[in-house]
Simulated scan of single mutants.
Amino acid sequence: MNKDFAKMCYFARLETGLSVKNASSLLNICERQLNYYESGQKNIPDDIVAKMTKVYVNPELGYEYLRQTKTGKELALPAINMKGISSRTLQLRVCVKNVIDVLSKLDIIACDDVIDQKEVNDFLDCMKQIQLLSGACVGIRLFRQIKKIRTDGNSTDFLDNINLNF
């Protein structure tokens, strides 16, 4: 894995309000090991990433981890916007518009079931827009409300009772 993913794990832990001590306890690893992972000094094993995804309530970690693996690269998993829901929604709208704009070009290319040499660049442009739309859709799907803990200890996360498993 890379340092960017390690940093993502670090920030995911901070967003949940967990200390290194608490997180390492929940992940069943020692504090030093978590520090190594978060600093990018050691690769994070699959099972620890899976635990982080659950403990930090952050499905984006698991997705980004898979996206960076050899299998994820072979699947051409799209990058996702890691910002807030408003940014992700705007990105989705822009991507939908861009795909609509290239659909007529794609229709012309595909109508004969052949992509000839002079159509390749236009086809690749269409595929790029579709890939960006795919990433925007995944970004919306993987969004999670960051839990804010009130002074009385209760979560203010309105998504707690909503089942998002489609």
Results as ranks from 00 to 15, higher is better:
V99H: 06
T156V: 08
F143H: 12
G135L: 07
D107M: 09
Q145M: 12
Q91N: 14
L124D: 05
L92R: 11
L142T: 08
L90Y: 04
L142H: 08
V102R: 06
L159W: 15
V138W: 09
L142W: 08
A110N: 03
T156M: 13
I162L: 14
S87D: 12
V96R: 10
G153H: 14
A110L: 13
N165M: 11
I149C: 14
D160T: 15
D157I: 05
N98G: 03
R144L: 10
R88A: 10
F158H: 14
L90H: 09
V138A: 08
F123Y: 10
I162A: 07
Q117Y: 03
N98I: 02
I100M: 14
I100V: 09
V99E: 11
D107P: 01
L132K: 12
A110I: 07
R141I: 12
T151H: 13
L106W: 02
N161P: 06
Q117P: 00
S87I: 13
I140K: 09
D101W: 00
Q131R: 13
E119I: 00
Q131V: 03
N121R: 06
I146V: 15
N154P: 04
L103H: 05
A136H: 07
F143E: 05
L159T: 15
R150V: 05
A136W: 05
S134W: 11
D157H: 05
I149F: 13
G139Q: 02
K105R: 08
K128T: 02
K128R: 10
Q131P: 00
T156H: 02
R88V: 08
N161D: 14
I140G: 02
F123I: 01
I130N: 04
I100W: 06
E119F: 00
K118G: 00
L159K: 12
K118E: 12
D107R: 10
D101T: 03
D125M: 08
L106D: 02
V114H: 01
V94T: 13
T156P: 04
V102Q: 03
V120R: 06
V120A: 06
F158Y: 12
T156S: 15
L164A: 01
Q131D: 12
V138H: 09
A110K: 02
L164C: 07
D116Y: 10
S87C: 11
I130F: 04
L106Q: 02
K105A: 09
L132N: 08
E119V: 00
K147I: 11
V102M: 06
L159C: 12
C126G: 04
R144A: 13
I115M: 04
D122C: 03
S86D: 14
R150D: 10
K105T: 15
